[in-house]
């Protein structure tokens, strides 16, 4: 895939905004964020009829082959849908769906600079005392997202869902993802899928906008541990809000390699914070179903990483091979635990 250059960016923006003069791009560089999209940071300056402007911006570009079945329009629209509804997110600025000009569809957003997003940093001793505050921030924001009335959001770009059907809809999607990205027989994951079909959960308490990847590493926080913005909405969808809670409890995201979920808080504490913020109940049996579903989802994503690395015609992403090697067996182990075989 063609590397982004400051000259390409300048030419594109000058053509897209003919009223702009003296368009200048500085400091364009790629950030080590995520496995599914390319993320770049840059400074923009230009002049127009209102005077001189300068902005700090983030650009996300769709690659030719990704481990996540999403696109620029979906994530851009998801950010716009939740913006202003009590969940802090960066402001979206531009969407270019034509892959021609920049070698792939792009979106541009405000860059909230000077904050942290590292999930590993939180494991350092200096952050240990701040973890309870970070837990309250993370699962509090997740609970508030669950509480947002879904009918108040413009989610027309998303696949429709119902309280009764969302569970099997998600299971169907992730089983199909596994089928499409088959990298070898998965007896443990396939057994989990059969169990999930035999033991469907109750209907969702409500439909919500589900983030789809809400965990440590996907939000910005300041030096005190206060959450600044929730990032990475490319898998957002209508669904059961328990899905987000369950994803955040996943063993594979226990970055402290202990019982703290997301490397931040014990499972019971995370659930307590989420329930208080959402006003919902995390029924243990339903939550267990969604935790196991999320293991299937995780395996679908890690297998998609392996498939993307194997099949891409462009430059391979190290993170695709790394994620598949590092996570596939751990995901199987998490399934064994949830199914009572560990």
């Amino acid at each position: 895939m063609k590397a982004l250059t400051e000259a390409d960016m300048t030419a594109y923006l000058a053509a897209r905004f003919p009223d702009w003069r003296d368009v200048r791009i500085d400091g364009l560089h790629r950030l080590p964020l995520g496995a599914s999209r390319e993320t770049y940071r840059f400074d923009l300056s230009y002049s127009d009829g209102d005077g001189a402007h300068s902005d700090r911006l983030i650009l996300r570009r769709d690659p030719p082959v990704s481990n996540v079945d999403s696109d620029r329009n979906h994530e851009y629209s998801a950010y716009r849908a939740i913006h202003g509804h009590g969940i802090p997110v960066p402001r979206m600025i531009l969407l270019e769906e034509d892959p021609g000009p920049m070698g792939g569809a792009i979106s541009i957003a405000e860059d909230l600079r000077g904050y942290h997003n590292s999930e590993y940093q939180l494991q350092q001793p200096a952050w240990r005392d701040k973890l309870p505050h970070i837990a309250a921030q993370m699962w509090g924001a997740m609970g508030r997202l669950a509480a947002v009335p879904v009918e108040n959001l413009d989610l027309e770009f998303m696949v429709p869902a119902t309280r009764e059907g969302t569970a099997m809809q998600e299971l169907d999607f992730w089983e199909a993802t596994l089928d499409k990205n088959d990298v070898g027989p998965e007896p443990i994951t396939r057994a989990a899928i059969r169990w999930l079909r035999r033991n469907p959960p109750p209907p969702a308490q409500k439909l919500a906008m589900v983030h789809g990847d809400f965990r440590a590493g996907n939000f910005l926080y300041d030096d005190s541990g206060t959450l600044i913005a929730v990032l990475d909405w490319e898998m957002a969808h209508r669904g059961d809000p328990l899905e987000d809670l369950a994803w955040s409890l996943a063993r594979v995201f226990s970055f402290g390699k202990d019982d703290r979920r997301s490397g931040i808080a014990p499972r019971e504490e995370a659930i307590r914070i989420w329930e208080a913020a959402s006003g919902l109940t995390a029924d243990p049996a339903a939550l267990h179903w969604w935790e196991l579903l999320n293991c299937v989802k995780g395996q679908g994503i890690w297998n998609s990483c392996a498939q993307a690395w194997t099949t891409t015609s462009g430059e391979r992403e190290v993170i695709h091979a790394y994620a598949a090697w590092w996570l596939r067996n751990a995901q199987d182990r998490a399934i064994l635990e949830l199914m009572g075989h560990l």
């Binding site: 063993r251 226990s254 067996n329 199987d332 182990r333 064994l336 635990e337």
Partner: peptide
């Protein structure tokens, strides 16, 4: 017994750096 073998297979494949 199938589950016991699947559990053993996961333990054989464990990566030291894995979170779980």
């Amino acid at each position: 017994d199938v589950w016991r073998e699947l559990t053993r297979s996961v333990e054989r494949r464990r990566i030291a750096s894995a979170n779980f």
